[in-house]
Design a protein around this nucleic acid. Structure first.
Length: 274
DNA sequence: ACTGTCTGTGCTT
DNA sequence: AAGCACAGACAGT
């Protein structure tokens, strides 16, 4: 597994940004023009960097938007048109394929105990993600065997179903984050103490390419004395990459710790600041 | 090794 | 029938 070239990563990055702005798929020839390579080469870049095609990624951008809108939208049709679908029919067709359920089922919350998971290679190692219909419950980085064992221990009372199709957009976004690139905001479904929740939401405001110190986070949440507790909350982050605890470092500039391994933290910060 | 062109396939309109 | 996305094969740098 050789690492993708820097140029390929940056081309994929600009192409994805274009689709984020557009809110959905963008014609391949436009993407190619914007990245100054042939259509064929851009397709190869996507396969290499993200393991998916430009068109599929565009579909993911659109459905993650729809997914987020659905959680708070007053009506399903509002969410559909907000997400840029031309017709209700088009949405239902794609939703059936991607969400694995109808929008109504999705808005209702579906079965509580059913969790979907998937696994994908990324620049910093294998990433595993577990999601409920409300959002991501857990993500981890490491070796496939260890990750799946941990998952089973973490969710002993849930029915865990591997569904790469339903999780595809999420995994693509995670692979992107793992490469230091921006990705659409992923909905989270995590639980923690009130304190942890405040730390985690503070972490999510740290932009890609920037870092904060544990002390700064403690100040942001108005508990300047709770630096150690902040560090603990970072360590307890259930969703690596999505809650960017890797962007928190020590006041003296040293990296501090990282649950998934300090080399990974280092690599993430390096590619984000590039 | 990276890239562009040509080509065939499959899907959609 | 036409357009599009995709991927295999091949050649140029």
């Amino acid at each position: 597994m050789s690492a993708p070239s820097q140029q390929a990563v940056s081309r994929v990055g600009t192409a994805c940004t274009l689709m984020h702005v557009a809110g959905g798929p963008v014609a391949l020839h436009e993407l190619a023009a914007a990245t100054c390579v042939s259509e064929r080469q851009l397709q190869r870049d996507f396969t290499e960097v993200l393991g998916t095609s430009p068109r599929q990624y565009g579909g993911c951008v659109r459905t993650t938007r729809a997914r987020r809108k659905l959680s708070g939208a007053t009506s399903v049709t509002d969410a559909i048109f907000d997400a840029g679908y031309g017709s209700v029919r088009a949405f239902y067709d794609e939703a059936a394929r991607r969400l694995g359920m109808t929008p109504r089922d999705y808005a209702m919350g579906a079965p509580q105990h059913l969790l979907l998971w998937s696994i994908t290679p990324t620049k910093v190692g294998t990433v595993l993600a577990v999601a409920s219909p409300q959002g991501l419950c857990s993500t981890g980085i490491g070796e496939p065997d260890e990750l799946t064992r941990n998952m089973l221990a973490e969710f002993p009372n849930s029915v865990l179903v591997r569904d790469d199709d339903a999780m595809r957009d999420v995994m693509v976004a995670l692979a992107f984050l793992a490469g230091g690139q921006q990705a659409p905001e992923l909905p989270l479904h995590v639980q923690g103490t009130a304190f942890q929740a405040r730390v985690w939401s503070a972490l999510r405001t740290i932009p890609s390419g920037e870092t904060r110190t544990y002390t700064q986070i403690a100040e942001v949440i108005d508990q300047p004395q709770a630096v150690r507790a902040v560090a603990n909350a970072c360590g307890a982050n259930p969703t690596a990459l999505v809650i960017p605890c890797h962007r928190v470092i020590r006041s003296d500039g040293s990296l501090g710790g990282y649950y998934w391994g300090i080399e990974i933290k280092q690599s993430l910060l390096a590619s984000e600041s590039a």
